[in-house]
Each structure stands twice: as structure tokens, then as C-alpha cells.
């Protein structure tokens, strides 16, 4: 067992977990933060993307024990006092989601893009989202949403 101390969405937590526990398992099964989804076994789909110390990672490919003392932000931690994050707001406005399954990872990834690049071009947005697969939207409205969020921030 490993003692894992983290700050998750602004809240300090400490849990004893088996050594092999993945961050995605800690979030979903232990902390009941089921907004982080699992869509594949090969770290390709991106439904599980969360932020570790502000950077987007695939939580299905990170051990919980490996990121001790980090700050984690998940999709559940974005909106503040009931107000949606500008990226969430933009996804809603531009219909950047349909079934909603890839959405948490997509939003977390897109937020990280804007940290790295303030005003990305369409192509830069599309390139960045290489690690997030969406089967519903055809991506066009996601790109529009990310652009809008970039313009607003």
C-alpha cells in the first residue's frame, strides 16, 4: 500500500491505495470523481485527461503513488461557485459535445493548450487535440469552442 497525498480540485486528500493504483482509478473508484472517463487501454483516446500540477496528462497511464504531493484538477473542479469555466461555457455555446463521453478529457486538454498558446490557429487546435478522440462531433464545433475560449481569456 502507498499513502497518496494530493490536492484534488482544491481539496487536500490522503488515501492508502494499492501500489498499482492508477490515477484514473483513484479518481473514479476511490474519490468517486467519475467525470474522468476510460475509453481505451492504450493511452490513445484521451477521455481520461486531467491536469497534474497544471499540465494535462492521461490519468489512465499515471500511477497515483507517482504523483504524490501534486495538485490535480479534474473536470469536476473547473466550475467555480456554480459558474462554468470559459472553456465549458464555450463548448456549450458552440455545441462542442454530443454524447459527452470524450468531453471531460477534451475540455481539460483544450485548457492546457491555451496555457501553452494564447491564440492558437485552427490548425494548432486540431494538432493539439491529436490525443483526444471524439466519435460524435466531427471536431468542428470543438475547434470553434476552443477558439472562442481563447478569444475570451
Amino acid at each position: 500500500m502507498q499513502e497518496v497525498r494530493l490536492e484534488v480540485n482544491g481539496k487536500r486528500i490522503s488515501k492508502d491505495v494499492p501500489d498499482q493504483t492508477l490515477l484514473s482509478e483513484l479518481l473514479r473508484d476511490i474519490l468517486n470523481l467519475t467525470g474522468t472517463h476510460i475509453g481505451c487501454d492504450t493511452s490513445q483516446c484521451g477521455a481520461c485527461v486531467v491536469h497534474v500540477d497544471g499540465k494535462s496528462v492521461k490519468s489512465c497511464t499515471v500511477l497515483a503513488a507517482d504523483i504524490n504531493d501534486s495538485k490535480i484538477t479534474t473536470i469536476e473542479g473547473l466550475s467555480q461557485n456554480g459558474k462554468l469555466h470559459p472553456m465549458q461555457e464555450a463548448f456549450k455555446k458552440h455545441h462542442g459535445l454530443q454524447c459527452g463521453f470524450c468531453t471531460p478529457g477534451m475540455v481539460m486538454s483544450a485548457i492546457d493548450l491555451l496555457k501553452n498558446k494564447k491564440n492558437p490557429s485552427d490548425q494548432e487546435i486540431r494538432d493539439w487535440l491529436e490525443g483526444n478522440i471524439c466519435r460524435c462531433t466531427g471536431y468542428q464545433n470543438i475547434v470553434a469552442a476552443v477558439k472562442e475560449a481563447a478569444n475570451k481569456s
Binding site: L33, T34, G35, T36, H37, I38, T74, I75, E76, L78, S79, L84, Q88, F91, K92, L97, G100, F101, T103, P104, V107
Partner: peptide, 13 residues
Amino acid sequence: DKKFLTGKGRYTA
């Protein structure tokens, strides 16, 4: 949209 965007969707898993 709001539930899906805030991680509150409830899928079978």
C-alpha cells in the same frame, strides 16, 4: 450540456 461539461454525466460504468 451542463451535466456533461461538469463531469456529472452518469454512464453505466
